[in-house]
Write a protein that binds this DNA or RNA. Structure first.
Length: 291
DNA sequence: CCACAGGACGGCT
DNA sequence: AGCCGTCCTGTG
């Protein structure tokens, strides 16, 4: 268990290792964190909003109750996991991975809400990060619930119940384009219990993917992102354009198909494939590999 | 004006 | 099983 303490109205994690908000929030896994000052980030998760401060050493959750820290943030930030051990395993006999890890040493895989992750990554298809953030924010403004935190206009990500009951006409306000019908249908499918969470967690990776792909608007890549970024499983290696290029350049020597890259990664990184993907993705973007 | 962005669907072979 | 036209919208 990571060391933390309650001081005044804040929760403080002293001298936290393996964390940097830039690495963690800007590696493409989440869409509701914004940098508000040099050392401060505003994030909205479940029914909470927080001003998170990181000074290079300590992590401070401003105006956060102990209850909320234990109920939401502790799990969200994956604080029980030993990232040092993961790094050791991944970079053993692998200088390429060692380099990637040194670039994104502060990456953590956030354990995000399943429904929010489904809808967010349906929106992500054929879209860049700024537009995804814009649509996600608009969804919250239109269909989310207000969060009372002193700041105006902060809203929760809408539930699938709410989205399932929304007409396509209403949904068009968020300008998700042709993805609006995916959002509506997938939300309805989730509400009707079409997805078996047990298969997602405990099936083999291909069964798990197939289960995710039952959702309208979810293909191979989005399925993998949802499984990884909602903390359901970590033996998953989402392959997109960036990852395909970085794997070609650093490991394979040629541009392989998504399917082939995925197989290679499963073989090489095994149970830690998801962590490997994040380090490589961040590295690719920083070094502009694939542009 | 056109190309393309961190894909998926559906119809076709 | 694989290929390809099409899909909204914003940006260059």
């Amino acid at each position: 268990m990571n060391k933390w303490k309650c001081e005044k109205n804040n929760i403080i994690l002293k001298d936290i290792k393996h964390f940097d908000p830039i690495h963690t929030f800007e590696c493409g896994q989440c869409f509701r964190w914004t940098q508000i000052e040099d050392n401060n980030w505003l994030g909205i998760v479940k029914d909470l909003a927080v001003n998170l401060e990181w000074n290079g050493k300590d992590l401070i959750f401003h105006d956060t109750k102990k209850d909320d820290f234990l109920r939401v943030w502790y799990s969200y930030f994956d604080l029980d996991r030993d990232y040092g051990e993961i790094k050791n395993q991944l970079q053993k006999d692998d200088p390429v991975m060692k380099e990637a890890i040194s670039f994104g040493h502060g990456i953590r895989l956030l354990r995000q809400d399943f429904q929010e992750t489904v809808i967010s990554f349906i929106i992500s298809q054929n879209n860049g990060i700024p537009r995804i953030q814009k649509i996600v924010e608009s969804l919250a403004q239109q269909f989310g619930e207000p969060i009372s935190c002193g700041k105006p206009d902060i809203r929760t990500f809408p539930t699938c119940e709410r989205l399932a009951a929304t007409s396509l006409e209403e949904l068009r306000i968020v300008r998700a384009g042709y993805r609006d019908k995916y959002i509506q249908k997938a939300a309805q499918q989730i509400c009707s219990g079409e997805i078996d969470m047990d298969i997602l967690k405990n099936g083999d990776p291909s069964q798990s993917r197939a289960e995710m792909k039952k959702l309208f608007g979810v293909g191979e890549k989005v399925a993998d992102c949802i499984l990884l970024f909602s903390g359901i499983r970590y033996d998953i290696f989402p392959v997109d354009r960036w990852v395909r290029r970085v794997m070609a350049e650093l490991y394979l020597g040629y541009e392989a198909s998504n399917e082939e890259v995925s197989r290679f990664a499963a073989e090489k990184f095994g149970a830690l494939a998801g962590f490997a993907q994040q380090y490589l993705f961040y590295y690719a973007r920083e070094k502009k590999i694939g542009m």
